[in-house]
Nucleic acid binder design. Structure first.
Length: 873
RNA sequence: GAGGGAUUAGCUCAGUUGGUUUAGAGCGCUACCUUGACAGGGUAGAGGCCACUGGUUCGAAUCCAGUAUUCCUCACCA
């Protein structure tokens, strides 16, 4: 025993077993028609990413599901990989080049991409290495990247497929423009936050009069692009302006005053300025009323020539400068503080400008229909189910998806222009194919006449194929037919629209099958104060530090215990401490058992009982653990296992069979104990893979290649509920006796006599264990002599004679308190029973139960009264 | 503005078609314990008018309505 330290040292153990598992190829999976697959595809982290707490949680959960399936004998396949993260990665590469003095604009597309790939090779994929520290049992040979050759091809093919089906189109639309990244982004990539800004009230002269109309705006620089003033047709204040024109301040342009019911008469002055180039609603108005569109902004957010003044100034500088100019011109009436929602780019955090541009879109409605149905009908199940509502709402209000990005890093749009017009293009996978297609339209096209679209696609246009393309599913049916549909997806609710919904759409569109059966939504990890973890707040612990401090097992258990599906987790290091402590507890149980001297002697009746009980206890708990797993209630499963090991196995079972000092244990009990311990380690293995493997290996001499990771999940045997209940009673009796000792200050070493009134209860089968753990001699149906302490467990009454140790007044006080409680209880029961309507209407067994409560309470009260009478002499 | 959750012990949460001896767990807290696996431990405790107000019912933490607080999603008016 001396070779095992009293503290568990996880560092060596974790590294050792991970390597061992890798060396033996236990994480790998190959299609095997004789085995049922259980497949999970990882939510691919950004190639630029580093591990954060969200990854820890969500990969722990995936690993648990995979390891459990592996133990159950399934063909467990967890596919890892990375996302090229178009906009995020391009931003990083651009920044790095800038640090080296290279401007993106000085590079050709190919030169830039070469730099980007260099960057990817050098820095990408750190996160996957970090996942190994966590114990993630991914099939690393399957690691995929969304820009791998085959994957890239599949993205182009699906684009072409959708285009040919009429679901992808190109058009001028108002899109969300990121002036920093210089690209369009989708609606989902815009984050709106409430921000304090200024509302400017500006007056416009009505042409040919001395009259003015006043409008309010938060973006005064857009005045330069105004092409109309709009009023409500029925607004009586402005009837006289119908058909008139107004003069735009500073630039003195004459614009029409139009009427439209869109205007809210109640808001502001009831007068609206219309800037079709820079606002979605204004754009619609412009279309409707056939207004001129003046785009006053350049792509980078500076004012263009069309603005006439402040040309070249940044939009925010212009905003600051234009206010005094308006004031000087006598046009600024007032400014006031104003809270409004401002949209910012998810990636660059710069303020989004609505911008009119030519982009590619996916028609979503036809794709959404089967995907919505799948969730509504339970073909795809969300855990927790509350996300069904969110999903339904989004799917039924879905808008077309802008998929083109003005970037270079990503999948280039396979459209080829052969003429000058915007409509003169063909969609094809390669230049050769494009040429062929173009020639079918215009016979004399030359290769040099073809120009490929400069844009790439939205990252999510490749991610939505993930469950198919990681198996090269568009080109190789063998793998796909075996692994697809996958089983579980584990992800955060923040990407339900970005990714989950779109994968479901892609699954039905391209495979006509769901991509996965279950979606487990994790919560968002917050700090102790409930704030989101963020780099700028510095409140996000480094997961690797945590693992170093508490062990991977400890962090896994800690995260899991406080993380029911879909609930946010206020993270505190202390929850990992609990995991670390648990590992130590297990370690010490191992030390205890391995330290026993095994003797060739017969198994005692009490040990046989203890073993029998523990087996059944394990079986009953395993039944509920299996159920919790199947319902994805992983935190409940974790808690069950925790208590099963700590309380039942360590505190009760091991204490019950523990040999007296200096003595050994019989071989039969010892062997049974090793088996029980091994089963417990198997059940815990998915959650704490490392220590369970270590303990399992140490319990017996294992053969070469024998490993818990590929061991067996225990069977949930039948159990006898009565016997389990009898042991629960035994525990309570022991607790009561210990409480008496604590109150009377009696040493556990002093043996006591325990009297039980009346007939023996079922607990007496454990009387030997009771004697041992409470250090008492049990006497049934034998009147206690003299004063003593007493207590009731269920309907059983017990007394411990304590001649000379008893303080009568103290005891009387205690009994009176108990009497008061029992009488109160009886009172409540009587109230029910004396209610005729209750007796007449309630089901028979409910009434019978109340009557039993009454009888029990009455007998207890009688007994207490009797004791009080004795004490009072 | 619309929709959807949530509200139970100091904290995080269970509580499964309304009835399991007047509500459970883990952590934290208090007292005692250098016992021979473990102080990263043991034993025993304290702690709740189940957000509020009504209603349905013989019976409500559980069902219904309203109020308050809070979170999420979507949509936004200058």
């Amino acid at each position: 025993m001396s070779e095992l330290s009293s503290k568990y040292n996880p560092h060596e153990v974790e590294g050792k077993w991970y390597q061992h598992w890798m060396d033996n190829g236990y994480f790998g999976s190959k299609p095997d028609p004789d085995k049922e697959p259980l497949t999970i595809v990882i939510p691919p982290p950004n190639v630029t990413g580093v591990l954060h707490m969200g990854h820890m949680l969500n990969n722990t959960i995936q690993d648990i599901l995979i390891r459990k399936a592996r133990l159950e004998g399934k063909n467990a396949c967890w596919v890892p990989g990375m996302d090229h993260a178009s906009i995020a990665t391009e931003a990083k590469v651009v920044k790095r080049l800038r640090e080296k003095g290279i401007k993106k604009s000085d590079l050709s597309r190919d030169e830039f991409l070469a730099h980007a790939w260099d960057w990817k090779e050098e820095y990408g994929g750190v996160i996957l290495e970090q996942l190994k520290k966590l114990g993630a049992s991914c099939d690393w040979d399957r690691t995929r990247f969304t820009m791998d050759e085959k994957y890239y091809e599949s993205v182009l093919d699906t684009f072409i497929h959708l285009y040919e089906k009429g679901l992808i189109y190109r058009g001028y639309r108002m899109v969300n423009w990121d002036p920093e990244a210089l690209t369009a982004v989708s609606d989902e990539e815009v984050i709106y936050t409430e921000e304090r800004s200024k509302l400017y009230h500006v007056r416009y002269q009505v042409e040919g009069t001395d009259e003015y109309v006043t409008i309010a705006t938060t973006r005064p620089e857009t005045i330069l692009g105004d092409t109309a003033i709009c009023i409500h047709p029925e607004d009586e204040r402005y009837t006289h302006l119908h058909g008139k024109r107004a003069i735009v301040p500073l630039v003195n342009r004459s614009i029409p005053i139009i009427q439209d019911e869109y205007v809210d008469r109640e808001f502001g002055t009831g007068c609206l300025k219309v800037t079709p180039a820079h606002d979605v609603n204004d754009y619609d108005l412009g279309q409707k009323h056939n207004l001129e569109t003046i785009d006053i902004l350049n792509a980078n957010g500076t004012l263009s020539e069309a603005a006439q003044i402040l040309v070249g100034e940044d939009r925010f500088t212009a905003r600051k400068k234009i206010a005094p100019m308006l004031e000087e011109a006598g046009s600024l009436i007032k400014t006031e503080e104003y809270d409004n929602k401002v949209g910012r780019s998810e990636r660059t955090n710069s303020i989004i400008e609505p911008r009119l541009s030519l982009q590619w879109f996916v028609k979503m409605q036809p794709l959404a229909e089967p995907a919505l149905k799948a969730v509504e009908e339970g073909e795809v199940k969300f855990h927790p189910a509350k996300f069904n509502n969110t999903y339904r709402h989004w799917m039924t209000n879905i808008k077309d998806w802008c998929i083109s990005r003005q970037l270079w890093w990503g999948h280039r749009i396979p459209a080829w222009y052969y003429g000058e017009g915007e409509e003169e293009f063909v969609v094809a996978k390669t230049a050769d194919e494009a040429l062929e297609k173009a020639r079918a339209i215009k016979a004399d096209i030359q290769p040099a006449d073809l120009k490929q679209d400069e844009d790439v696609m939205d990252t999510w246009f490749s991610s939505w194929l993930w469950p198919i393309s990681v198996f090269d599913g568009f080109y190789d049916r063998e793998e796909l037919d075996y692994y697809y549909p996958t089983n579980d997806l584990v992800t955060g609710p923040d990407i339900i629209f970005f990714w989950v919904a779109r994968m479901i759409m892609a699954g039905y569109e391209f495979e006509n099958k769901r991509p996965f059966e279950n979606v487990y939504f994790t919560g968002i990890i917050r700090d102790k104060l409930g704030r989101k973890m963020s780099k700028s707040l510095g409140n996000s612990p480094d997961p690797i530090d945590l693992i170093n401090k508490y062990s991977a097992d400890g962090v896994r258990l800690g995260l899991l215990m406080t993380a029911p599906a879909g609930n946010d987790i206020p993270f505190d290091d202390a929850i990992c401490e609990q995991g670390r402590n648990f590992a130590n507890k297990i370690w010490n149980a191992l030390r205890l058992i391995k330290g026993w001297k095994v003797e060739d002697k017969a198994q005692s009746e009490d040990n046989a009982k203890a073993v029998q009980w523990m087996r059944q206890r394990l079986a009953s708990e395993l039944t509920s653990i299996n159920e919790n797993f199947s319902k994805y209630r992983l935190n409940d499963a974790a808690m069950s296992i925790y208590k099963l090991v700590w309380d039942e196995f360590c505190s009760w079972y091991l204490e019950a069979i523990k040999p007296a000092y200096g003595e050994g244990i019989d071989a039969e009990t010892y062997e049974s104990t090793l088996d029980l311990f091994a089963d417990l380690m198997a059940i815990l293995h998915p959650i704490m893979p490392f220590i369970t493997e270590e303990v399992w290996q140490s319990l017996r001499d294992r053969n070469e290649g024998e490993c818990l990771i590929v061991g067996a999940w225990p069977k949930a045997e039948a159990f006898d509920a009565d016997q389990l209940q009898a042991f629960e009673t035994t525990k309570q009796i022991i607790s009561e006796i210990r409480a008496v000792r604590a109150q009377k200050n009696l040493s556990p070493k002093d043996s006591l006599k325990l009297h039980q009134k009346g007939e023996a209860g079922g607990y007496t089968q454990f009387a030997g264990i009771l004697s041992k753990l409470a250090n008492v001699e049990v006497a049934i149906n034998e009147t206690a002599s003299g004063p003593g302490a007493s207590f009731i467990v269920g309907t059983l009454e017990f007394a411990i004679p304590l001649e000379g140790l008893i303080d009568a007044s103290e005891e009387i006080e205690k009994l009176e308190e108990e009497l008061k409680y029992q009488e109160g209880f009886l009172n409540a029961v009587m109230k029910k029973l004396s209610n005729e309507r209750f007796v007449n209407n309630a089901p028979e067994q409910v009434v019978a139960a109340e009557q039993k409560k009454r009888a029990d309470a009455e007998s207890r009260i009688a007994s207490i009264k009797q004791q009080l009478a004795t004490l009072n002499g």
